[in-house]
């Protein structure tokens, strides 16, 4: 197979658009999930009394917040799959336009 012209693709406006689209999702999502996750050990470590407060029956904030991490992970996963479908389309259009 001939080597594709990497620089030509890299300078194509549609490639830039694809990269921008990915960054627009990935960077905020990563920052959000890291902050949301690290908030758990920080709250538990430094505000243990608050986290031990029961909310529903005997279930306390600590357990509920931990459980919400599962939900958070699945939601971000689902959002990622949704936007990635759009990236796949942009990508296919770009490669088709350039004849690869």
């Amino acid at each position: 197979m001939n080597q594709p012209d990497w620089n030509r693709i890299a300078n194509d406006p549609d490639f830039h658009a694809l990269q921008r689209a990915k960054r627009r999702f990935i960077i905020p999502a990563t920052v959000f999930f890291l902050l949301y996750y690290m908030a758990l050990p920080v709250l538990i470590g430094f505000w243990p009394a608050l986290m031990k407060t029961p909310v529903i029956g005997k279930v306390n904030w600590a357990y509920l917040f931990a459980l919400s991490q599962f939900l958070m992970t699945w939601v971000i996963c689902w959002l990622y799959v949704r936007v990635a479908r759009r990236w796949d389309k942009m990508n296919a259009a770009l490669l088709a336009k350039l004849g690869y």
């Binding site: 999930f33 996750y37 050990p41 538990i44 599962f70 992970t73 990622y80």
Partner: peptide
């Protein structure tokens, strides 16, 4: 907390 950390880690892998 291990259970939580081991799972959230997959977002790093995915993203």
């Amino acid at each position: 907390m291990y259970s939580v950390g081991f799972l959230v880690a997959y977002l790093t892998v995915l993203l």
